[in-house]
């Protein structure tokens, strides 16, 4: 019963996406590579992969407000590295782009969404950590970022690392790992929280906060947009392995399969291609993809 309802909703959403895609931008600003779906792949019966491949559609949670990783365009369709990775994985299940329903996940609701089965997987700059691993399974990492600090050009406060933040107004997004890190480990800093990183950037540009902090790769995007106004401290003080969240299971079959798929994407070059088309806009050098971990103790690779 529940399944049919979800399927109906997903179908309707997919139809809406098709419509949106038809009216999409012809000037093709995003040079994302075309993803071709596998034709009727075979999976062992009873597995999540078989179910998804059978359904021919899936629901994926991603950020809609994260430049480079997942940012909704004017039609409301997300674009970015996370989105490309998700499309590539879906393609291995024989699911085409048109049959993916994108659901916006904000930092605060990723675990609940997975636990409640509201999404089939989450690809949303989702840092693998112990606490989250208790309630969801993590495949990957497929990228490793590090928390860094963005300061006004010339670094007027002389910030070299998180220790220098004491007494300064530091902006980050409520519910995000970087914000929690500052709150618990650098309590001297005056943490200001917003709903989206762009709000923080604006507050930084007009002097309402002294600096902002989150993962370096996101901050790099802002530096490339405003090279005269802001600069990156360039001293990452954490390691943020981005994982792919899937619902917790006993046998970890789906999680392992996502890991295998990631490794295939590393080998055939599509990971690098996706990177260059998205994050590559601000980071010239395409890094080596990180080694995927085990689904039992993720990130421990």
């Amino acid at each position: 019963m529940m399944r049919t309802r979800v399927a109906l909703v997903a179908g309707a959403a997919a139809a809406a996406l098709v419509l949106a895609a038809c009216g999409g931008d012809e000037d093709g600003e995003t040079a994302a590579p075309d993803v071709t779906a596998e034709e009727s792949p075979e999976f062992e019966a009873g597995t999540t992969m078989a179910e998804l491949a059978e359904a021919g559609q899936m629901t994926i949670g991603t950020k809609f407000d994260q430049p480079l990783f997942g940012l909704a365009d004017l039609e409301g369709v997300p674009q970015g590295f996370d989105v490309e990775i998700a499309k590539l994985i879906a393609a291995q299940l024989g699911i085409t782009e048109d049959n993916i329903e994108w659901v916006e996940t904000v930092s605060a609701n990723r675990e609940p969404f997975l636990e409640q089965g509201r999404v089939d997987m989450v690809v949303a700059t989702y840092t693998i950590n112990e606490e989250r691993d208790k309630v969801v399974d993590f495949a990957g990492p497929y990228y490793v970022a590090g928390q860094d600090i963005l300061v006004p050009a010339g670094n007027p406060d002389g910030v070299e690392g998180p220790e220098d933040l004491a007494g300064l107004r530091v902006c980050s997004v409520s519910g995000s790992t970087p914000a929690e890190n500052i709150r618990t480990n650098y309590a001297e800093a005056n943490l200001v929280e917003f709903d989206a990183y762009t709000d923080c950037l604006e507050a930084l540009l007009n002097g309402q906060v002294d600096n902002m902090t989150t993962d370096n790769v996101i901050l790099s995007g802002y530096v490339s947009e405003n090279p005269d106004e802001v600069e990156l401290v360039g001293n990452p003080f954490t390691e943020e392995p981005y994982g792919i969240g899937v619902p917790e299971s006993e046998d970890k079959v789906f999680c392992e399969w996502v890991n295998d798929t990631l490794n295939e994407l590393y080998e055939d070059g599509s990971w690098a291609e996706a990177f260059e088309a998205t994050v590559g806009e601000v980071i010239e050098e395409t890094p080596e993809p990180p080694a995927t971990g085990s689904c039992e103790t993720p990130g421990a690779a």
Binding site: F64, L71, L74, T105, N109
Partner: peptide
Amino acid sequence: GYVELLRYGQRAAE
């Protein structure tokens, strides 16, 4: 994250 008028406006502004 319900994309109503205000949220759409803020997102488009990005």
